[in-house]
């Protein structure tokens, strides 16, 4: 078998070699300037450019048609709606620029393909035109900046809620722990030197405020319609808490506490009824059944979105959004740090 392959390769090389020799000989005889494009080659390349342009822009719309309904469902948080709206208009704007400029480019590439009988015009400058295409993008950008920063300021402003829900997400290689402040409403202070098996997030055991803190793994719950203020910490390397359905993301940096806040607007159950989500889940489950995997239901997910080591690709936690009543019920059943540590 190996011999055959070697033989085939050798034969192939010989054949190519012979072919090249013939070509070179022919070239010697003709003495053409073969590097110069001929008119018919210019025609061909120009036409291919046009064709490419058409197919390229056609593919753009085809891809939107095929894949856009597999992108993230409509935002499930209050500020997320603004982000979606802004994203939509920005996408429209850049798609417009993308289509127009590429269309012009490939059209020009076709229209002005070379021909021996033509000469270009001599046209080196036009400050009015250049002014025009400085001002047009500048004004489009003014619009983008204004709206972008308006929402950015709202999203990053400190919470004004009197008593928001507070959740700390604690990252380590390669899982998440959520911490709630417990009855006193205060997260206990922390000291990384006290981390051990029974104190996984490094609570300072001299701080009483931490005793009633509630620690959960695998999934965490938040109530719909209430502002949730998140604090993020990391034990080892940088991670990033990414909750794409809520349009929320913040890095978890060792030695620092970072924060992000949002107000969920749909419970997990409501989300499962959403037509967009149902269509998406149908496609997901079709693919899963092809691969012989169990069907799944929609869930909000927390992902790690900053490279953090070998299992970065699988550092996840389920998020459950429910009514405040259900949330309180769930929270009551969770164990506090003190009961966990005393075990």
């Amino acid at each position: 078998m190996k011999l055959l392959i070697v033989l085939a390769v050798v034969l192939f090389i010989l054949a190519v070699h012979q072919l090249l020799k013939v070509i070179e000989l022919a070239r010697e005889i003709r003495k053409t300037k073969e590097w110069e494009p001929t008119d018919s080659e210019n025609d061909l390349m120009g036409t291919l450019m046009l064709l490419f342009g058409i197919i390229f822009l056609g593919m753009f719309f085809y891809q939107i048609d095929r894949w856009y309904d597999k992108t993230l469902p409509p935002a499930a948080s209050e500020h997320g709606k603004h982000i979606d709206e802004l994203m939509f208009w920005n996408l429209i704007l850049i798609s417009f620029v993308f289509v127009v400029v590429n269309a012009l480019l490939f059209y020009f590439a076709y229209k002005y393909r070379g021909n021996k009988n033509r000469k270009s015009i001599y046209y080196a400058d036009n400050s009015k035109l250049e002014m025009l295409w400085t001002i047009i993008p500048a004004s489009a950008l003014a619009f983008i900046i204004t709206f972008g920063l308006k929402y950015w300021n709202e999203i990053t402003a400190p919470s004004e809620e009197k008593n928001p829900i507070v959740v700390e997400l604690y990252a380590k290689q390669f899982d998440w722990t959520a911490r709630y402040p417990g009855k006193d409403g205060k997260l206990g202070s922390t000291d990384y030197r006290q981390i051990e098996g029974s104190n996984p997030v490094g609570l300072d055991t001299t701080d009483k405020a931490g005793f009633d803190d509630i620690l959960v793994k695998n999934e965490f719950h938040i109530p719909v319609g209430r502002e949730v203020v998140f604090y993020f910490r990391s034990r080892d390397v940088i991670h990033s808490a990414f909750m794409p359905h809520f349009r929320a993301q913040m890095n978890c940096v060792p030695g620092m506490v970072t924060t992000f806040k949002f107000k969920p607007t749909k419970t997990t159950k409501e989300m499962r009824q959403d037509p967009y989500v149902q269509n998406l889940m149908k496609q997901i489950n079709e693919q899963r059944s092809k691969e012989g995997k169990e069907p799944v239901e929609f869930d909000y997910t927390l992902l790690c979105n900053k490279i953090c080591g070998a299992s970065h690709y699988n550092m996840q936690m389920k998020i459950v959004v429910e009514t405040e009543q259900e949330y309180n019920e769930w929270l009551r059943q969770q164990k506090s740090f003190k009961t966990l540590a005393s075990k």
Binding site: N42, L105, A109, S120
Partner: peptide, 27 residues
Amino acid sequence: TLLIAIPSAVKAFNYLTTLWKGNIQYT
């Protein structure tokens, strides 16, 4: 960052205008 888009746009349009009414030799 968004300011950078302006000189970049100028470049793109200047490329287009250079091609416009040219006699493109397709090397």
